[in-house]
Design a protein around this nucleic acid. Sequence first.
DNA 1: TATGAATGAGAATTCATTCAT
DNA 2: GATGAATGAATTCTCATTCAT
Lengths: 204, 204, 204, 204
Amino acid sequence: MLKRLPRVVREQQMLDAAVKVFADRGFHAASMDEIAEVAGISKPMVYAYLGTKDELFIACLQREATRLLETVAAGVLPAATPDEQLWNGLRSFFTFVGAHRDGWRVLYRQARSEPHFAGELAGMRARIVEVVAGLLESACAAAAVPARPGDFVAMAYAYVGAAESLADWLADHEEEDPEQTATRMMNFVWIGAESLLQGRVWRA
Amino acid sequence: MLKRLPRVVREQQMLDAAVKVFADRGFHAASMDEIAEVAGISKPMVYAYLGTKDELFIACLQREATRLLETVAAGVLPAATPDEQLWNGLRSFFTFVGAHRDGWRVLYRQARSEPHFAGELAGMRARIVEVVAGLLESACAAAAVPARPGDFVAMAYAYVGAAESLADWLADHEEEDPEQTATRMMNFVWIGAESLLQGRVWRA
Amino acid sequence: MLKRLPRVVREQQMLDAAVKVFADRGFHAASMDEIAEVAGISKPMVYAYLGTKDELFIACLQREATRLLETVAAGVLPAATPDEQLWNGLRSFFTFVGAHRDGWRVLYRQARSEPHFAGELAGMRARIVEVVAGLLESACAAAAVPARPGDFVAMAYAYVGAAESLADWLADHEEEDPEQTATRMMNFVWIGAESLLQGRVWRA
Amino acid sequence: MLKRLPRVVREQQMLDAAVKVFADRGFHAASMDEIAEVAGISKPMVYAYLGTKDELFIACLQREATRLLETVAAGVLPAATPDEQLWNGLRSFFTFVGAHRDGWRVLYRQARSEPHFAGELAGMRARIVEVVAGLLESACAAAAVPARPGDFVAMAYAYVGAAESLADWLADHEEEDPEQTATRMMNFVWIGAESLLQGRVWRA
DNA sequence: TATGAATGAGAATTCATTCAT
DNA sequence: GATGAATGAATTCTCATTCAT
């Protein structure tokens, strides 16, 4: 009944549908039936192209993670100062999350809560942490401060966690501005509570 | 076949089992069968005492949230300076999370990923954020700095996320000390990256 | 809606139904739905008591194989001469097959044709071959004839195969008499074609 | 994408693939997808050339049955004595089965177990039994022994079963020689257990 | 109180089969 | 002649939930 479309196109349609349904319903509550229906295609096609429900979910994860990483990477200028880099990275990040709330929900909320996908998720987070730790390290080197390498990773974890959490919050608050969220994060991360609570703020 | 036990005791057994299974498997993948089995009790009893699966989950959520809040609250001395309060709060938090790995963190994650529990969750979130935001606000007031209330909530989010992420990291690094993790968090939160990267650190 | 019956009873009902349906339709074409319906019970009960379709099939196999082996063993008198033992064994065997045509069909026809159950079946056949080879060996010893041990097993295989094949044929021919089939087999096995074709026959 | 080949060649390729897959997986578990893939051809071609799955299976059956019959028939010399005929027939049979294990499995094991193909199978069985029974009958006539026709069919069944079983055994014992297996069968069939157990053997 | 027995409903997954190109 | 795209229809299996005892 349906127009014949080339595989690549259909796969994207399916991934779009899957991301939406997973985000709306949660992994388990999402049914392959609904995904197929939203994609405007029959279930067997989904299986034929993207495999089982697990594989489909992982495909979603990967597509969204890659998009996110690419967006953030594109936002950071190599030549900038550390706090400019951080600011740009955060802004790209929150803007992306604001624009792809579904993708983010799938990526972090669902994946995190399903012990089943812990491994997959850990890998993705590791990629991100690595990037952030690298930024910190080079910033530190620029400041000629001696540091133990392990510390950067721990800090990076804390940063990423904070960002994830704020992003999560952003995803639930339509009215909130991504830019403002990024500013908050900058204050939080860069300035520190002590100074913040003394009235100091960070400005782009 | 089981010894007759007073209702309250039985209910705690069930909640213990439920928390464990929900944490291990995730909300959907957890089956009432397994919960009953782990509790060492028959399924109909679970229904009789704690109602449907949804209700059971909410009961778990509430118990764990309360425990966490009470622990953290107990650790904070009202008369201390803001950074001492923060330090004590964080230390209580990490200790609790380390000791109850099954509890709050996991349940919170589950709850978040099930759109179904949005309502329930909002209430609890509010209680916790209220506590953390309260800390921040009073610190701020002490410093006589004007602040917008919404900001505290966002900050609280970022803190909790960072703490969670570090807790995760802690779980993966046996050699790491909870106390040291709390210190890291203090540095991160209190001092801020800017100063940190210039070599400044926080000391208890 | 159904009368509550103890587990043991229900299990037998289910096995009866399963044997019948497997025999009628073949393993793959048999549906769990139909088996449950024939057993007069709902599908989940079948899964609860007897496990998956594969496990259910194996349970059928084992019940039928055990019944068969016990029947045959009971028919053989230890003190008899070799040909009497053989005759009694064969008579028991064919009588059993004649009386439980469904069981036999499940046992040998289905199991054999599903590569999946090759292992299970091989084990059962090995048990039988062992018994037969033992009979042959003791008969040979009684006749003081020197023999290589391996030969008995090969012979036993041939006998068992012949008997299986005749039993299969019997299962398809309602009009055929088990006793007569056993006689045929005796002639075939004991007398040999050469003598048979010269008009000699075996008599009980 | 494939070289255009004459229809007859393509059909043989498909049948080869189908026989292999049916033999490996069993009729139901065999998928048209796999058959097409093994044949190196797309599914619609299989349908275009050989029809539905059932029809395809029957085509396999017919080809294999014909091959077997022709091989055995070609091995038997009309002018020989009965035991020479039998010996030659058995030798041809075991050699064929050894060389076309897949075909044999499809023919006897799969077809037998699918009630669905009962009709088809009956016809083939009749052709084979007719050949074997014919051999027996003419041997019997040569010996001027009166016999009931029904007996030959039953005997033929027993023979075929014994041969199958030995063939199976042969398949599991690489070191065993087909020729020797045929000799075993000759002893079994021609000489009979009684004489065998008294030390008599058959020699070509 | 306590539980073994029982089920309705729904989920994932697979397959033979057919079009449109 | 040849194939990638597409699907209707089953089928296995699981689970929350409830009775009858």
